[in-house]
Simulated scan of single mutants.
Amino acid sequence: MSIETFDYILEKIGDKLKKKWSNFIKVPICPCERLIVTLRFLATGASFASLAFSFRLGKSTVGAIVKETTQDLWDNMFTIHMPQPNEQCFQEIAEQSWKLWNFPNCIGAIDGKHIRIKCPGNTGSMYYNYKHFFSIVLQGIADANCKLIAVEVGGYGKQSDGGTFSSSKIFNLLKSGELPVLGNTCLPNSEEIVPYVFLGDEAYPLLECLLRG
């Protein structure tokens, strides 16, 4: 991450990260350090214990900092950098997909990512995945520049990508016609009319608006 990007993020959420001075916390952890700790965790996946040792903080303090800062990041920045996709957004993605990857009518690539967790209580094997660890699933849609335009978190680790997709909000919006997906159009240099599609791997179902490879 560049210094300019770091300063931009700190400017957006710095006020939210400030803590009041008190008689038992004479020198509160500054917003800059809180953001650094959180970014290190997100970038490396290091344990709270190792981050606590590196930054000379308590392990529970690191956990609280990461939880609070990530929530502030999402609350204050998702509307700016990950707004709900609209027709114009999908049109730009389709144009970039053709320009960069020579693939027509593509409005995004979809896939799932297993996020390792400790097994929640009384859940049996619901979160135990095929990779043999406990996880929740993050399903994301990326544009032609590999930037996420939509994410959904919370699928059970035992679910396949197809199962996660079938129970996701994205699928329900597609099924009901509420997602502003572009209408059918001609392929480049052709008169054949075909729909715009998302791209997924073989774990996803083959649908009119979802092409799998």
Rank of each mutant, 00 (worst) to 15 (best):
L51V: 01
T61R: 10
E33H: 01
R40K: 13
K59H: 13
C30A: 00
A43K: 10
P85Y: 03
I29F: 02
L42Q: 10
P83G: 14
L42Y: 05
P28A: 08
F41G: 09
T69P: 01
I29R: 01
I65T: 01
R40F: 01
P31F: 02
S50L: 05
N76M: 12
V37G: 11
F78N: 15
G58L: 02
T61P: 10
L73A: 07
N76F: 00
K59M: 15
L39Q: 09
K67N: 12
F55Y: 15
T79S: 09
G45C: 06
P83Y: 08
T79F: 12
V37M: 14
M82N: 12
G63K: 14
L73E: 03
G63D: 06
F48L: 11
Q84F: 09
H81G: 13
I80E: 14
C89M: 13
H81C: 15
M82A: 04
F53H: 11
N76D: 05
G63I: 03
L39C: 07
A46K: 11
C89S: 01
N76Y: 02
I36Q: 12
A52R: 08
Q71M: 11
W74P: 07
N76L: 14
Q84D: 13
K67Y: 12
E68Y: 03
R34N: 00
A64T: 10
G45E: 00
V37F: 05
K67T: 15
M82L: 11
F41D: 00
K59R: 15
C32I: 06
I65L: 04
Q84M: 12
L35A: 06
V37D: 01
L42V: 13
F78D: 12
G58A: 07
G58P: 02
N76P: 00
L35M: 03
A46H: 04
W74T: 12
C30N: 06
F41C: 04
N86G: 03
V62C: 06
R40D: 01
S54I: 02
V62Q: 07
M82D: 04
F53I: 05
W74Y: 15
V27E: 10
Q71K: 15
M77I: 05
S47T: 15
L42C: 12
Q71G: 09
P28Y: 03
Q88W: 03
L35T: 07
I65H: 02
L42R: 09
Q71N: 12
F48R: 02
I65M: 12
R56A: 13
E68H: 14
L42K: 04
R40E: 08
L42S: 06
L73S: 00
G58S: 05
H81F: 15
I29S: 02
S60Y: 10
E33N: 10
T79A: 09
F53P: 00
E33M: 14
T69L: 11
G63V: 09
P83N: 13
K26M: 04
S54V: 06
G63C: 07
G63H: 06
G45H: 04
R34E: 04
E33I: 14
A46D: 15
G58F: 01
Q84Y: 03
F53M: 10
C30E: 10
T70R: 03
T79H: 09
P31R: 04
L35H: 01
L73D: 05
P83D: 09
T79R: 07
E87G: 08
K59F: 05
T44Y: 00
I36H: 08
A46Y: 06
T38W: 04
V62E: 12
K67C: 12
M77E: 00
R40N: 11
